[in-house]
């Protein structure tokens, strides 16, 4: 399966989902007005990966900021990762935040809670 790589823009994050290593990176800004269009191919890629995932998947989520338009698409993405885990595979979610960024910590905790999916909250090392 080809890795999914999307270069970042001012409004959309960097994406590198590599099925050969099981490491998925999301990093940067996510504030497009119609974020669903951006996330649709990512979620489709995840659907294919879900059919034959590695025994261990590591997901690194490092947003500087995400808007409400991205919030629903992000939930969908996390739900797909949870489904992989529910099928018996290891999935680790690392949720990164900048030092003292209370909002990002709260957002990570909130997603973790509504999905009943443990997150590793990690401060970004300067």
């Amino acid at each position: 399966m080809e890795p999914l790589k999307i270069e970042p823009t001012l409004k959309t994050p960097y994406i590198l989902f590599d099925a050969s290593t099981g490491i998925f990176d999301i990093k940067g800004m996510s504030c497009a007005e119609y974020a669903r269009e951006f996330y649709a191919p990512i979620n489709e890629w995840l659907d294919s990966y879900s059919k034959n995932p590695l025994s261990e998947t590591i997901v690194n989520i490092q947003f500087k900021y995400f808007n409400t338009s991205s919030a629903k698409s992000l939930l969908l993405l996390l739900q797909k990762l949870k489904a992989i885990k529910s099928n018996g595979y290891n999935v680790a979610i690392n949720w990164f935040y900048e030092k003292n960024d209370e909002q990002m910590i709260q957002d990570g905790e909130n997603y973790s809670e509504i999905l009943s999916l443990p997150f590793n909250l990690k401060e970004i090392e300067q």
């Binding site: 497009a32 007005e33 119609y34 974020a35 669903r36 409400t68 338009s69 919030a71 629903k72 939930l75 909130n110 509504i114």
Partner: peptide, 22 residues
């Protein structure tokens, strides 16, 4: 917020009704 977030329908405009709440 969580209720609307988990409601699968997106409204036709991208915001999904979360803007003012947020």
């Amino acid at each position: 917020y969580n209720e609307i977030l988990q409601n699968n329908s997106f409204n036709t405009k991208g915001g999904g009704g979360l803007g003012f709440l947020d």
